[in-house]
Design a protein around this nucleic acid. Structure first.
Lengths: 208, 208
DNA sequence: AAATTTAGTTAACAGTGTTAATTTTTAAAA
DNA sequence: TTTTAAAAATTAACACTGTTAACTAAATTT
């Protein structure tokens, strides 16, 4: 069945085109300036064609979101080389901050916008593979830190929330321009890293 | 000039009506379901009338945002009675979490949406009185904690960012349904408070 | 009473996501 | 090779959105 195979390949190709056009519009013109019609213009198809490949706009957002997680996951590969779990925790936090500042539009989709989660609930039965995996990595690092007596023993879920909460808080406040009164734009990244470092120091009991 | 006075009073009254109608729509139907036309319907004026009282939609959002800060500030009045600054810090954090979960739409405007900050830049010369005041309270508490040797000495701005970042991170992740995989909805609030408690304990050096 | 300012409205523009009906293109069957 | 059936893509439309220009009605001043 060489023909049906080719046809499926073409379908996947157009699907990719739609996602890539959307992605470019996101990065270039910002989140609010992406419309179905603009995506259609970019790929030179009519707006309704997009609905043959994606259920609705949120469905597109969700798939871009997934790509964001893939990028983040790839960036985190380097963590595997780090032996000290507390240092690994810090580096993972730094990675998180870097990712958020480097790809603000992706970060928006992954962690700030409501739309992708709605699609996950409606179309993917609440299953959020990529998001869960990143979270597991975090809890595992925390468990390792406790096992090696680097941090005080506690519920890993609570710790994970506290640490994720903090780095997410910093990134999202920065992206939404809420930190301007606290620090100048040039120093923002550096100060965020210092805040992370300060927290890691505060929980480190190995040097006490 | 009794007449011009009455007229100004009427103008202010309609202004209030617009804000209150907007507020109700926010709380009842959610952020995305507020449109100029719906506000106009609610107050039984034509949509264009609203533009005689507010520059644009963002201008309305900004003023609702200001009301949110007033509410938050009022809720924080009880902090004044707390002598121990570290306990005061914890209670302020708890207040922050409570506020975010109790008034999600207000919280959205105050800390998540981009629109209000744009209006502040354009119409109010970047001046954000209410937001700044809340931040000052936080840094002052932190300074007091350091003065009384309850926490390790450090740059108050960095500390403020770390702590604000964390509570904001928790609230915004919760509002955007990102914590579902980490904790069940019923336990969410409690776990968030525990995360805060854990952090306060981690930075507390008075019992070491 | 006439002129002028103020308050509010109507109609319209340019844009949004989305759907039903219709056409064009492609592959399979006669 | 021509006809038929299926697939792919399009046009037209609906019900919205924020916002503006032009206009009307009411109130105040001259």
């Amino acid at each position: 069945m060489g023909i049906t195979e080719r046809k499926e390949k073409q379908k996947l190709e157009l699907r990719r085109m739609i996602l890539e056009a959307s992605m470019q519009l996101f990065v270039q013109e910002g989140f609010d300036n992406v419309s179905i019609r603009k995506i259609a213009d970019k790929i030179e198809y009519s707006p309704t064609t997009i609905y043959l490949y994606f259920k609705d706009k949120n469905d597109i957002l969700f798939h871009l979101c997934e790509e964001g997680f893939a990028m983040f996951s790839e960036q985190n590969q380097m963590l595997l080389n780090i032996q000290n779990p507390l240092l690994r925790l810090f580096k993972m936090g730094e990675n998180y901050l870097d990712f958020g500042l480097k790809y603000p539009e992706y970060y928006d989709l992954m962690f700030i916008q409501s739309a992708p989660m709605q699609t996950i609930e409606e179309l993917h039965c609440g299953d959020w593979k990529n998001g869960d995996r990143a979270l597991e990595t975090l809890t595992m690092i925390l468990q390792e830190c406790m096992d090696k007596n680097l941090i005080a023993k506690a519920d890993t879920n609570i710790l994970a929330m506290a640490i994720w909460g903090m780095v997410h808080g910093l990134v999202s406040l920065s992206l939404r321009k809420r930190l301007d009164k606290l620090v100048t734009p040039e120093l923002e990244r550096q100060t965020m890293q210092q805040a992370l470092q300060w927290m890691i120091n505060a929980i480190d009991i190995s040097t006490r």
